[in-house]
Amino acid sequence: MILTIARKELKLLFVSPLAWTFLALIQLMLTWVFLGRLDAFLELQSQFMQIANPPGATEVIIVPVFAVASLVLLMATPLFTMRLMAEEWRNHTMTLLISAPISMTAIVLGKFLGLLIFFLLVTLLAVMLSLSLLVGGTMDLGLLLSNAIGLLLLAACFVSVGLYISSLTSHPAIAAVGTLGVLLALWIADIVASDAGSVIQNFSLLRHYESLNRGLIDSFSLVFLVLFIVTFLILTIRRLDGERLHG
């Protein structure tokens, strides 16, 4: 049942030009960054030779590409999550899902999974772009894997927040603005806390992503991101149940 809902979400996504335009644009941007960094790497290569432990191509080229990808996702996710629930409320299609013999959990997980598969596609595009480096030499596949896992987890966090906020309103635009606001706040939580050891820093999503971005698979970061996702999914399910109870 979760798959049926996920399939429907993907179908609705790909009949609209939004998904295709986004895929094209993000690929264009990532390639731009990729080529820019590649250029810089080639220029600096002779100087790298003189350092004892020089950074590799993966570190110089791929890490910035994924850092940019995370920012693009932060800006774009609200556009995709806004319609997940809000539009179902507005078009009265939620009735179809609620009247069907499926649980609220299946509805929420299906929607989450559907959008996550889309972002998996985005991650795969970035990974394929990175793998093209193999044509000209070797690369650090472990670092690439850590980046890919990080990007996907980050996207999952964004989607779960967006899904929850979308379930609070029947206006997609409000859902989009709300999600963007929350995501930006979670992003700059890093900057707000001036001293290094502050607790607030732990809530910054991008800070956890950065460690994965650098190739450091920190179990604290992984647990934080997964708990973050689960929390917002549970909130969404409770919200759907609440709508039925309090209407």
């Binding site: 429907k8 179908k11 609705l12 078009n91 009265h92 009735t95």
Partner: peptide, 29 residues
């Protein structure tokens, strides 16, 4: 709910889908 078929006041239609796609989804649900 397996035994109920319900047409609400506002028909719950996904207007971006074709009739076949929509009914397929309803059948799977």
């Amino acid at each position: 709910k397996r035994h109920i078929g319900y047409l609400p006041e506002n028909p719950p239609l996904y207007k971006e889908l074709t009739v076949d796609e929509y009914l397929q989804f309803a059948a799977r649900l």
